[in-house]
Design a protein around this nucleic acid. Structure first.
Lengths: 192, 192
DNA sequence: CGTTGATGAGTCATCCATGTCTCATTTGAG
DNA sequence: CTCAAATGAGACATGGATGACTCATCAACG
């Protein structure tokens, strides 16, 4: 083996496979390992060599989703400035991985018995913290709990992602739709 | 056969089976036909006699879901009074079937290729009509499309149902949480 | 009480996804 | 070029869910 880069190993591009799998499974959650392999341009044998079973693949996708999600949280700088602005930045940053998140969200309920990845807990905490901060500064209302606002954000992201995928709404409106509905609601505001 | 009621036929209570199946599949979407049968207190043979295959069962659940949903729409009297009030009534009325709706919602994406039940379209239309009415009377903002508000309502119902099932939020807060977030958003309103 | 019809339990064959294995082929390293 | 290592294609056994079937049992009707 050479020190220089394992170049031939790159014929199997783990990251590429994961992204293709995420993309496919987002659209068709019941896709076969065979289908995943073909979508990624590799053989089922190779796919199974690197991910022992579907579980391993889903777990890897989970890690990827958590990593991307946490990267989005970083990029959104949740602690900076007004909470509302942070929410808007967050929605914008997280948009690229909503498809994957939606898939993992629905897949997670299949792992009911088992313990779930601690990453989701960390993400929950940061989002809940953001909403709580907004409540403490008086920016957000307090009759809706920070926990619920977090769950609602998840639901809106999923609904938005799905609506975009179905062509019901324009992709460009994603951020505005979600952030403004979550922040301002459906009713007109006569103030300001 | 007697005219009087087919009483012994009632040993198989179709409605009961459907409700039990809905309840179980809502919690565990991958439940076996065997599990569904046992949950309903009947044998797998009988279950298969009345629903030829899992598809038929899911289709029947779909019919049930649509019927309950439309009943909720009726009970909410969407055309009466202020649109905001109609939304609140709707959320309250539809709460009992959110679990089933969430299951069907996720199950529907498996029927991708096939044509979907026209009932969903009717329901979509009525909800979109409600939001459009609110926009036309000036009650709701117009920068968020009625289509998106409808999708968002679905997303919030799913998120709320899930959050309640997970014990993250109180069941009694369901209506208030969803309706008020959808209508008023997360930010404080200083007016009124 | 006998008949009729549905149920329950069990068996059986089938299908499909999966995981493992082998072998020929390809590709990069030395 | 030669060797090492990974890939691709295919075969194979496995397990699980499913649907169809049989047969004994049970309940209601006449």
């Amino acid at each position: 083996m050479s020190l220089m880069g394992y170049y031939w190993l790159m014929s199997f591009d783990r990251d590429h496979v994961l992204h293709v799998a995420a993309d496919l499974l987002t659209r068709k959650a019941t896709a076969t390992m065979e289908e995943v392999a073909r979508a990624a341009g590799i053989s089922r044998a190779t796919l199974n060599r690197h991910f022992t079973g579907r579980d391993a693949l889903v777990r890897a996708l989970e890690e990827l989703g958590i990593a991307k999600c946490e990267a989005a949280l970083e990029a959104a700088r949740l602690e900076e400035g007004a909470a509302a602005g942070a929410v808007r930045r967050l929605v914008r940053e997280i948009q690229p991985c909503t498809g994957l998140l939606t898939f993992l969200y629905s897949e997670n309920q299949l792992f009911e018995g088992e313990k779930q990845n601690a990453g989701w807990f960390r993400i929950d905490e940061r989002l809940t913290g953001l909403f709580r901060r907004g409540q403490e500064t008086g920016e957000f209302r307090i009759d809706l709990s920070a926990t619920w606002l977090t769950e609602a954000l998840y639901g809106l992201l999923a609904a938005g992602s799905w609506a975009v995928a179905e062509g019901r709404v324009a992709r460009n409106d994603f951020t505005h739709m979600i952030a403004e509905l979550l922040l301002g609601g459906a009713m007109r505001r006569d103030e300001s």
